[in-house]
């Protein structure tokens, strides 16, 4: 399951990462090394084994739907790279 250069570019696009030209080669090689190592998982027969996602038995945590204090708007916006009239500003989308 070796990754090609095109697949690396595809994954970078999915991850919203732009890669410098020299990084494309480097990442292709390094990711393939890691994937080759990880492929040892295929040695194991896991038929019928229930995947484990959460290690302690906590399910569906509910609480009262009560009004409580949260971050106020100014605090929530305080780290925004650009803000205007109580909103985050982004480049024009439409």
């Amino acid at each position: 399951m070796a990754l090609t250069r095109d697949e690396v570019l595809h994954v970078a696009n999915l991850a919203r990462l732009s890669l410098a030209p020299e990084e494309i080669e480097l990442f292709t090689r390094q990711l393939n090394d890691i994937l080759a190592y990880v492929s040892k998982l295929q040695e194991l027969d896991t038929a019928g084994v229930e995947p484990l996602a959460h290690v302690i038995p906590v399910f569906n945590v509910f609480r009262e739907d009560a009004v409580r204090e949260g971050l106020d708007r100014d605090a929530a916006l305080s780290n925004a790279p650009a803000r205007e009239e109580g909103a985050f500003v982004v480049p024009r989308i439409i």
Binding site: V8, V11, A15, R16, L17, S18, L31, L35
Partner: peptide, 18 residues
């Protein structure tokens, strides 16, 4: 994300995305 993340973080994001 290219300028803000270092090489190892980008490597792991790529691997996880894949």
């Amino acid at each position: 994300r290219a300028q803000g993340f270092g090489a190892e973080v980008r490597r792991r994001i790529m691997l996880g995305t894949y």
